[in-house]
Computed example of a mutant assay.
Amino acid sequence: MTNGFNRPALRRTLLAAAFAASLATLGTAQADDTATSATVRVRSGASLTVEQRVSEELRAVMTELIETGAFGDQSPQRIALDVDTPAQRVSNLGVLVDSARDAHDGLRVLAVTPGGGGERMGLRAGDVLVAVNGTSLAGAGGAAASLRQTVDSLPNGGALAFDVRRDGRAQKVSGALSSVYLPAMHLTIGNGKQLASNAGATTAAALAPATAAATSSAEQGCGRISDYDIAPRQQQLHAAKIMSIDGVTPGPSGTKAYRVAAGMHTLKVAERIENSYLSFNDRERNAALASERYKTLTVDVAPDTTTLIAAHLNEDKRSEWQGGAYWNPVAWKQSAEACR
């Protein structure tokens, strides 16, 4: 036990917070913004392989997320996620702060990762962080974001100095920031391909007049168009959203695959590329005219086939947000799947 926390349970809690934050960017799970710098060291038995250690921790994280309702009312069989992160440097402060409460007197430390940078500096659960490197963390909103920005802006080995209130007394806590460099990661959970073609598929009748759709489907067969995100990032393929099919908004909301008559269809597509892959900010991204946010894609849907749609990031134009030059919609994969 450390500061009232069981070490394995604390490690899983911090992992779950970090993982849930990643899922929230995909619209799958909601997480409080309470975790600051989230490299958590795995201390499983030395006899386990790296793969076994990662699997062990991931299983614990998924169990905790499911038990706490992070996936809503989805059954485990219908949970399917595709999480990608680029190679990155991560600052290993290892401090969990309470950003949900008013930080008028500073950020309260809920827990520290055993062996993490915060613990080595001398930070403890219950401390109140009043300032970091001269920047106040009290009396204003966004204190957790300010702490994260300060930590992330420092190089490996950079100096951190905290003004701390502990047991009602002011103290100074300082040390060198430790960073680790993580490889690019691709994590797939569940059978995304199957869900892309089957889960909640909308019928052709929802996309066109019923009589014409039924006749076309009967004569030509049918297939599916899906924007389910299982696209490989190493091929510069990212999430996309189908806004309309042949001029009709598909639905219901949340559907990821749409059944259509076999043949040519015109799609209006929006990109859902993660910010970390782009060279401009959301303000510039959202400055584009509404007519520029969507692009047209024509696809030829074969019978009994699911066509997967993605946003292709144009590597040489990743900083050109004007006119949406940085991306194009593509039909990147076709999978055989019976359409009935």
Rank of each mutant, 00 (worst) to 15 (best):
L237S: 12
H238E: 09
H238S: 09
H238P: 03
A239I: 01
A239N: 13
A239T: 07
A240K: 12
A240L: 08
I242H: 03
I242Y: 06
I242C: 03
M243H: 08
S244N: 12
S244P: 01
D246P: 11
D246K: 14
G247S: 03
G247I: 03
G247N: 07
G247D: 04
G247F: 07
G247H: 05
V248Y: 06
T249Q: 09
T249G: 06
T249F: 04
P250I: 06
P250N: 15
G251H: 05
G251W: 01
G251E: 00
G251N: 02
P252N: 10
S253F: 05
S253G: 12
G254M: 02
T255K: 01
T255G: 11
T255Q: 01
K256M: 14
K256C: 06
A257G: 14
A257D: 01
Y258W: 15
R259I: 00
V260D: 02
A261V: 07
A261W: 14
A262E: 06
A262I: 03
A262L: 09
A262N: 09
G263Q: 08
G263T: 12
G263N: 07
G263H: 11
M264T: 10
M264D: 08
H265K: 08
H265A: 04
H265M: 06
H265S: 10
H265N: 08
H265P: 06
L267A: 09
L267G: 09
L267E: 02
K268N: 12
K268W: 10
K268A: 15
V269K: 02
V269I: 08
V269Y: 03
E271Y: 02
I273T: 02
I273V: 05
I273D: 00
I273Q: 00
E274M: 07
E274F: 02
S276L: 09
S276N: 11
Y277Q: 06
S279Y: 08
S279F: 06
F280R: 08
F280D: 05
